[in-house]
């Protein structure tokens, strides 16, 4: 019972949100960093790291998936990529990167998170492009569209629901992965949990767990709405079917 009270008092103490000395602290070399005792600062850091990871993954995976889907090649390779990434523990990649030349901290986390954000975007954009009805493609060719026009004006719009679903999956997954950063001396909301466990303040651990869970669920809900908005009504059944099979 007291753990819940502790968690409640942790969450309702203003200083835990704003930090004892503001949301940033200066580093010894004259720069600044997000304060580790402020939920707001850690939250902002968490979001920035997630956005960086998903952006890197999307820049690499989207064109690749769209191209491979358009030429309908490499389906097996995309499946293998997603299977291996599922078997690879996030922690393994994090610790490997942290111990390598990349070093401890947020950089290792962003790269690792980007690697895990890569497969859902790749497979979904591939499937979205490759699964376009051959008759539709045929019709587009029949009215004299070039390959490029078919890809950008016919296949891509039809693939948007699946691509959006992939971006959502990978974003939510990234937001859920970034807390592990705390284990390799990175920032983000996992720090609250890690500090709590290290100092045996289980109220804080519980509070951190709640915050991370709420952030993940909110991200999922917000992106779910966005996904619905970019999906034309006629294609919503397709998107729903894709989600059920994922």
């Amino acid at each position: 019972m007291s753990t819940i009270e502790d968690a409640w008092s942790y969450l309702t103490t203003a200083q835990n949100w704003t930090g004892a000395n503001g949301i940033t602290t200066s580093t010894f070399d004259g720069g600044w960093t997000w304060a580790n005792d402020s939920i707001i600062a850690l939250g902002i850091e968490h979001m920035l790291m997630s956005i960086a990871a998903v952006t890197i993954a999307a820049i690499l995976a989207l064109p690749l998936g769209v191209y491979l889907g358009h030429v309908r090649k490499g389906g097996t390779a995309t499946v293998i990529v997603s299977n291996v990434s599922r078997a690879m523990p996030t922690l393994a990649l994090l610790t490997l990167f942290a111990a390598s030349a990349i070093g401890f901290g947020n950089k290792a986390v962003i790269i690792a998170a980007a690697i895990f954000a890569f497969p859902p975007i790749l497979t979904n954009s591939f499937t979205g492009m490759a699964d376009v009805d051959p008759d539709v493609r045929d019709a587009a060719r029949g009215i004299g569209m070039t390959r490029f026009q078919i890809a950008t004006r016919v296949e891509l719009p039809l693939a948007v629901p699946l691509i959006a679903a992939g971006l959502r999956t990978s974003s939510v997954q990234t937001v859920a992965t970034v807390p592990l950063a705390a284990l390799v001396a990175g920032g983000g909301l996992g720090v609250i949990i890690n500090t709590g466990i290290a100092t045996q303040r289980y109220g804080q651990v519980l509070a951190g767990g709640i915050i991370v869970a709420v952030v993940a669920l909110t991200t999922d809900a917000v992106l779910g709405r966005l996904q619905r908005r970019v999906t034309p009504p006629q294609l919503r059944a397709v998107a729903a079917a894709a989600k059920a099979s994922a």
Partner: peptide, 20 residues
């Protein structure tokens, strides 16, 4: 909903009750 909760957070939610 449960699946969306990050594992790191889930372990943190459970730890106060089931111990480490």
């Amino acid at each position: 909903v449960l699946y969306t909760i990050p594992s790191f957070a889930l372990f943190a939610l459970l730890a106060p009750y089931t111990g480490i």
